[in-house]
Design a protein around this nucleic acid. Structure first.
Length: 871
RNA sequence: GGGGAAUUAGCUCAGUUGGCUAGAGCGCUUGGCUGGCAGCCAAGAGGUCAUCGGUUCGAAUCCGUUAUUCUCCA
């Protein structure tokens, strides 16, 4: 059975059991401060488990693209070394929200695996939760009973809290789970050791494929467990492992999911797969990481230097590093695999096919920049080795500096050390690393207390902000958050006029009035589906409240948001349909829009886009808003949707002239475009390969901007005495200025030359030294020129220049090379002595030194004194 | 969120304890030579040493600010 069929079979099976099949949520998570990437199938249903959102379908199944690289589930360093861990993987899952529980979940799992997929029953082992004293939990005998009616008791094992009690995070929904393991060893191996002894022992051939979680508790911040009102089922089956079992291979990487990449890599590297362990690992790492990076980019997460973008960068670099070290790639290569990836997965995940060029380009750019980083690291390393010729051990601190500051991988440092018969002090490295970790941990304490519930409420907060900026509302729950010594509260309301930050539009500010007490709302944010108002203090007495949004800020923000839609549409008209939104920020001051496009926008293109947008503004188009339209229908109507954005079953469509601009959008907008007033682009630039960023302003801000530019130009024109052609006049002026500057420099040098000629006559020969000490009214730079001029003209010269410039005395000493060598004269030492006379200090090299001082009166004395150094 | 670094000619980068008349290679301009794969030789142009402020007689160099970028950790 090929992988595509396996996936389809799973979804059809659960459809036949009355499950709603939903699409995969984006792999990159937005609106959740605790999570950067989807790391389990249940992520997109978190709000359902927590009771923050109402349940629409009580039975759901899907395949979810997941990424596990950081946080609780961290598999990154394992990937590639074994045959069954991945960064990016698909998780097949079925869910019950307060519907069926253990019995159906277990029976259906068994039916699908043995009846449909026809896995050999004798190879299956299952585990159930064995209880935990600390949490006061009994063994899960219920699950044991259900299983024992299906499988022999000797293949049902009790497991520990670690393996059989599933938790979402430090707090949140959790419960006992039951895992299904399959033993795919050869028969003679199976005879020697029972599979039961190898379950959960990290044996690559006795593996967990399906985890059935029975969620019935909520873990609170104090560590205690609270029974949930409803019981849920949450299951997850690793798609790649399932393919391995059904295709009879011994490694996930030998299935049709990964083989196409490995074969292409093998061809590019000109090395076979399966002959050398290290080469094989490298190929697996690259095949795995390629998928993770490409999916992330397709979801709109570009490699960058912080947060989620940085995680993507690190994954890519890990792939390049393995290719560099073990496959001897010296040129970018990962990007060459994108074509195979699109062929392989483009059908199921259309976002890949649609953005093939962009993905390839971004990866190639990243590879190049990392190869450059490696080069700098090698440079630093060699410099270190050269300056420590006697050492046999490379300082751990230096190795850490290379790693920490220049991003040079530690294993490469070790490798290069080995080539020079050196060793790296790994203990020192690890100590430095530990210090770094402690520092970061100490700084990252975020203390979130449990919610205090004021009113039982399990619906989504009703958003009133499309119609009104003021409303009577009821508080539902609140909690205290401590971060970096600052304390604030988050509060949830049953309904609210406050817009919570999302879709690029910033959150509203305003006030909540409880009785006669005013509480300021500093921001409104979204945590998954929850609208959270940030307040600095809670009211002394809880009651219904009057919510008022800061109107000025909101209206200005709306101007910019609507302008963003017009701009997006105009961009596609001018540049083409390859333009995809890659990021957007809209606040009361400006709008920022990132989009895919492969070259700099020309001045003409920018002008044209501005023109179209301003035309549309003047057309005074009324907003055409559709709420609660089915997603399919909205797309069929031609509304633009974004890759990497999570949409519900029903969406909101915003049209400004539906032939021109139609977008799926939850944000707030102007009633008609005329209110925007004026649209003006103020900057255009690149932020990554293939991604451009434009910033623009609207309304009064745009007017003020244009006026200030005009005023500036007027001022320039006035200064230039109102010429006919301002630009030409200015160019001419600058040219003249440059020429004049050169001329002055030249003249000064000339002048010093002629001064030097006159001075030659004054030079006195004493003890074979041509000596002269004179005072001038010249600048320090001129004194320098004069000194060097004399040095070129007079042999065996010892020349002291005293100068006064801007009221300050200065001294310059120059000595011919032969005197420095033969007589041991040292200008640096001499000037230190002389400078005392002018209350200054100085220094330089043996043949040339300068000094400055404060006392002009001492200059003559200093010049007199110079003579005593003649010896 | 916390730490470490970088920013010098069009490009890639040197520049030691504060004082080298701010440098190298590549590129560019001009002239000359030369049938040979990055031709050779000579001359030359090109710099707000990221920014603003401070310390100092003197700052590319030391201290602080801002901006941008890199990098590690969370």
């Amino acid at each position: 059975m090929n992988s595509e069929k396996i996936r389809k079979t799973f979804l059809e099976f659960f459809k036949s059991k009355q499950h709603e099949i939903v699409p995969s949520a984006p792999m990159v998570v937005k609106n959740d401060p605790t999570l950067m990437f989807t790391n389990a199938g249940m992520n997109q249903f978190k709000d359902l488990f927590l009771g923050n959102s109402p349940i629409k379908h009580s039975r759901i199944a899907d395949t979810q693209k997941c990424l596990r690289v950081s946080g609780k589930h961290n598999d990154l360093e394992e990937v590639g070394h074994d045959t069954y861990h991945h960064t990016m993987f698909e998780m097949l899952g079925n869910w019950s929200f307060g519907d069926y529980f253990k019995k159906e979940a277990i029976e259906w799992a068994w039916e699908l695996l043995t009846e449909i997929y026809k896995i050999d029953k004798s190879r299956i082992y299952v585990t159930v939760f064995g209880g935990d004293k600390e949490d006061g939990l009994e063994p899960d005998n219920e699950a044991f009973e259900i299983w024992s009616s299906i499988v022999p008791k000797d293949r049902i094992l009790y497991g520990s809290k670690k393996d059989n009690f599933w938790e979402m995070g430090d707090t949140g929904p959790c419960g006992p789970c039951s895992e299904v393991h399959v033993d795919i060893r050869d028969d003679d191996e199976r005879k020697k050791v029972s599979g039961a002894d190898l379950v959960n022992k990290d044996n690559p051939l006795v593996i967990e494929i399906w985890n059935l979680v029975f969620i019935e508790f909520n873990r609170l911040a104090d560590g205690s467990l609270k029974q949930l009102p409803n019981k849920h089922v949450d299951t997850g089956m690793g798609f790649e492992r399932l393919c391995m079992i059904l295709q009879g291979t011994k490694s996930n990487y030998d299935t049709d999911v990964f083989q196409p990449y490995i074969q292409t890599i093998s061809k590019l590297a000109n090395k076979p797969y399966g002959k050398d362990v290290k080469v094989d690992i490298a190929m697996r790492v690259i095949a795995d990481h390629l998928r993770a990076i490409a999916f992330a980019i397709a979801d709109g997460e570009l490699p960058s230097n912080n947060k989620a973008g940085y995680v993507i960068r690190r994954i890519l670099r890990r792939a390049v590093r393995y290719g560099y070290t073990f496959l001897e790639f010296r040129e970018p290569f990962v990007n060459k695999l994108v074509g195979v990836l699109v062929e392989q997965m483009g059908n199921q995940f259309t976002e890949l096919a649609a953005q093939k060029d962009l993905i390839g380009k971004v990866i190639a750019e990243e590879e190049n920049s990392f190869l450059k980083t490696l080069e700098t690291g090698i440079h630093k390393f060699e410099k270190y080795v050269d300056s420590h010729p006697k050492d046999k051990l490379i300082d751990g601190k230096f190795a850490f500096e290379l790693f920490d500051t220049y991003g040079f991988p530690i294993d490469l440092t070790c490798l290069m050390a080995k080539e020079k018969s050196l060793e790296v002090d790994m203990d020192g490295f690890h100590i430095a690393m530990e210090e770094q970790k402690n520092r970061s941990r100490a700084a990252a304490t975020l203390d979130v207390e449990d919610w205090v519930v004021l009113k039982e409420f399990h619906e989504d907060t009703v958003f009133l902000g499309y119609e009104t900026l003021e409303a009577e509302v009821n508080p539902v729950k609140y909690r205290k958050v401590k971060s970096k010594g600052k304390e604030f509260y988050q509060i949830v309301l049953d309904k609210t006029p406050f817009y919570a930050e999302s879709g690029g539009q910033v959150g509203d500010r305003g006030v909540l009035v409880f009785g006669d007490e005013k509480i300021i709302v500093t921001d409104t944010q979204k945590e998954n589906n929850l609208s959270v108002h940030i307040i600095e203090k809670i009211p002394t007495k809880w009651s219904a409240a009057k919510a008022k949004v800061d109107e000025k800020k909101r209206l200005l923000t709306e101007n910019n948001h609507s302008a963003t839609h017009l701009f997006h549409a105009a961009l596609r008209k001018v540049l083409g349909d390859h333009v995809q939104q890659k990021g957007s920020l809209v606040d009361e001051q400006r709008l920022r829009f990132d989009f895919s496009h492969f070259s700099k926008m020309t001045d003409e293109e920018i002008a044209k886009v501005e023109d179209i947008v301003n035309d549309k503004i003047r057309e005074n188009i009324f907003i055409d808003e559709h709420r609660d339209i089915a997603l399919d229908k909205a797309k069929a109507m031609g509304a633009m949707s974004l890759f990497g954005e999570k949409y519900g079953d029903t969406v909101r469509v915003i049209n400004f002239d539906k032939e021109f601009s139609s977008e799926l959008c939850g944000g707030t907008h102007v009633n008609n475009t005329g209110r925007i007033g004026l649209f003006k682009i103020i900057s255009e630039g690149a932020i990554a390969a293939g991604i451009r960023r434009v910033e623009a302003i609207t309304g009064k801000a745009a007017e003020e901007y244009v006026n200030s530019k005009i005023k500036e130009l007027e001022e320039v024109r006035q200064i230039l005495k109102n010429p006919k052609e301002t630009v030409k006049a200015l160019e001419h002026l600058i040219e003249e200025h440059e020429a004049a500057k050169k001329q002055i420099e030249l003249l000064q040098k000339e002048k010093m030359k002629s001064v030097a000629v006159e001075l030659i006559a004054k030079v006195q020969n004493k003890n074979g030294i041509n000596f002269l000490a004179e005072k001038f009214e010249i600048s320090t730079q001129q004194a320098k020129d004069l000194a060097f001029e004399m040095k070129a003209k007079v042999e065996s010269l010892f020349f002291v220049v005293g100068n006064v410039f801007e009221g300050k005395p200065g001294l310059t000493v120059i000595i011919s090379d032969d005197l420095v060598k033969d007589k041991g004269l040292n200008a640096g030492n001499i000037i230190r002595e002389l400078a005392k006379n002018i209350q200054g200090g100085g220094g330089g090299q043996p043949f040339f030194a300068t000094a400055g001082g404060k006392d002009v009166g001492g200059l003559d004395k200093a010049l007199m004194e110079a003579e005593k150094f003649l010896g």
